[in-house]
Amino acid sequence: MAREDTPLDQAVFDATLADQLAKGADKRVAEGRARSAAVRAYKAAHPEEGEAAPAPAAAAPAAPAAAAAPAAGAPAAAAAAVPAAAVAVAAPVTTPVRTAPLPTGNIPTPKKGADDKHRLLALVPPEGIQRVEREQGDRVNVWPHLLIEEFVAMLILTAGLLVFSTFLMAPLRQLANPNLTPNPSKAPWYFLGLQELLRYFHPMVAGIVIPTFILVVLAAVPYVDRNPSVKPGDRKIAISMFTVLFCFGATLTIIGCFFRGPGYNWIWPWAQGVFFDL
């Protein structure tokens, strides 16, 4: 039976469709839900029609007649369908039970001479379809354009790092001595901003609260900033906030690196020298 001539309850269909659309569902989704609700309502109202299925011979002549209905006079076709339904009513009325074969525990073996192929069929509900809507846009081939650019970037980086490493030795001080604290003792440079904060705040604040806060806020950025635009002109607040925070962190780090000397006291690097190791 084709989908179009599945009997359905038109009143329920209209009501559900309007309801779904009012709820803001997609038109196709709304139609699908309305159709299934209407078919269910129709089947609930006409339980006997489920019994027509076991008698395909009786139903078969009716189906072509129904399909031809739009071409011929619709009232005539409806009249033709009525006897078929009447025959079905005569059958004993039981609730229709859909049964699947009981599990046997045996793994089915293929039929002899069966094709060595298989078909996969997937039924996808309309809401399960991911629609990708984007214009083709101005696109270029990754090879050669992007790959060559990346390759050159890698070469430049490698060359620069090689030259740097040839002439600048990485520091190696005396053997570690837990009893001899160097003055000043500094954390690695990326933590020096926090060490600088330690001068102004309680260690609990500088060492725990602020770093945790920064990480959480950073991770939450896309969920807080719901402005859809990426144009700098539309994002003045976001950009200025990030810039201020970024510069704040950079300033603290630079102070910690270069402007703190023995006893972690303030120094001017051009006067007292640099107390900083990478």
Partner: peptide, 16 residues
């Protein structure tokens, strides 16, 4: 495992 390493790590971990 030089002076730089052990003390930087001592300071860094004491932050937390």
């Amino acid at each position: 495992w030089d002076q730089l390493a052990i003390w930087a790590v001592t300071v860094g971990t004491s932050l937390g």
